[in-house]
């Protein structure tokens, strides 16, 4: 039984509960940090996971919180990667500067193209997002004098992070750097989704008609979140370019947009940790399967997708996660009946 509170305090408490830190969350981040010292030899894959997680987190802002289906999110990832790569190649070696530039460039293009996805059905949104990614891919391909075209952008030299932490051969700095960026951007996203602005995004996702009818400027909010998500994806791409010191046309390709969607779907949408958990699972499974049949990895990706939706995304994730259901709920995973 709850102790009877004055209603206002009860309401405040109920609203505050949404954004409270829970123990498993703290434990998760502590674990991720511990890996920086306890798992030498695994830094490369940890770094990739952190980057993929950030990319999926950015898609979660769109799909999970705002209900926008995108199949071209790689556009912003790739744009960020090329921006950071080109900056480094032309003498700006400070990684953090590169991150800001990548975020800015991706946000700019995200803002400009957000107006294309404002209206229209899922189908037009899917087509337009694919189209934007294709256009960027085509531009990168044609501007080979700048981007290196099909050979990729080579000769990226990074300086130490913040002038202090040199990138090492084992990737310890790389992982630490990516993890730090992921954590900071995660905190920001967490803050945003628990704000009135974030709540209004959920409202738009649930019912745009009603959202407009309570005075929420639906178009403006979607433009804002699309721009934000683009910036996030841009940063993820920049991290990839900086930590691997290479960018190829691959960063803009369709399969990357599809991968990140799968990652997010595996982890579950709408609670921020879905992208991170999905990234861990995806890369670990990929590592296993790719050892068996390196070039046929996509068969298994496809199979996972088909089975996942055939049985019902919510149901599969719920069943697999059943032993951890209580835990996941404490991560803030929304409980929805199928």
């Amino acid at each position: 039984m709850t102790i009877p509170h004055p209603p206002a305090t009860r309401v405040t408490a109920a609203l505050a509960r949404r954004g409270r830190w829970r123990l498993p969350e703290v434990a998760f981040w502590a674990l991720a940090l511990a890996a920086l010292f306890l798992l030498p030899g695994r830094y490369l894959i940890l770094n990739e996971i952190a980057i993929l997680a950030l990319f999926a987190l950015s898609l979660d802002l769109l799909l999970g919180y705002s209900g926008i289906v995108s199949l071209g999110h790689a556009a912003f990832f790739g744009l960020g990667a090329y921006t950071a790569g080109l900056l480094a190649r032309h003498g700006v070696a400070e990684p953090v500067v590169g991150l800001f530039a990548a975020a800015g460039a991706a946000a700019l293009v995200g803002f400009a193209t957000s107006f294309l996805v404002l209206r229209g059905s899922d189908l037009t949104r899917i087509m337009v997002t694919i189209g934007v990614a294709l256009v960027l891919g085509e531009i990168a391909n044609r501007m080979a004098w700048l981007t290196g075209g099909a050979d990729g952008l080579q000769g990226i030299v990074m300086g130490p992070v913040l002038g202090t932490f040199e990138f090492d051969l084992w990737g310890q700095t790389a992982y630490g750097y990516s993890l730090a960026v992921l954590f900071v951007l995660f905190l920001l996203a967490r803050r945003i989704v628990h704000s009135p602005f974030g709540l209004s995004l959920c409202a738009i996702r649930d019912n745009p008609l009603r959202a407009a009818a309570v005075g929420i400027p639906v178009g403006g909010r979607l433009v804002a979140v699309y721009t934000l998500a683009a910036a996030y994806a841009g940063v993820a791409g920049a991290l990839l370019a900086q930590t691997t010191q290479f960018v190829s046309l691959d960063v803009l390709e369709f399969h990357r947009s599809a991968d990140v969607l799968l990652v997010l779907i595996i982890g579950g949408t709408g609670y921020l940790y879905g992208g991170i958990i999905g990234a861990v699972l995806f890369r670990l499974v990929q590592d296993e399967l790719a050892n068996l049949t390196p070039q046929y990895w996509y068969f298994w990706v496809g199979l996972i997708l088909v089975v996942l939706v055939l049985v019902g995304r919510e149901r599969v994730v719920a069943t697999l996660a059943a032993p951890f259901a209580g835990l996941l709920r404490r991560f803030g995973r929304p409980v929805r009946e199928a």
Binding site: D122, Q295, F299, V306, V309
Partner: peptide, 22 residues
């Protein structure tokens, strides 16, 4: 939902590509 349809059919595409490649 359209999202489910898209995920399902992309899955089929990936499987078909890998299978034909194989």
């Amino acid at each position: 939902s359209h999202l489910d349809q898209v995920l399902f059919s992309i899955g089929l595409v990936f499987m078909a590509i890998a299978a034909v490649d194989y």
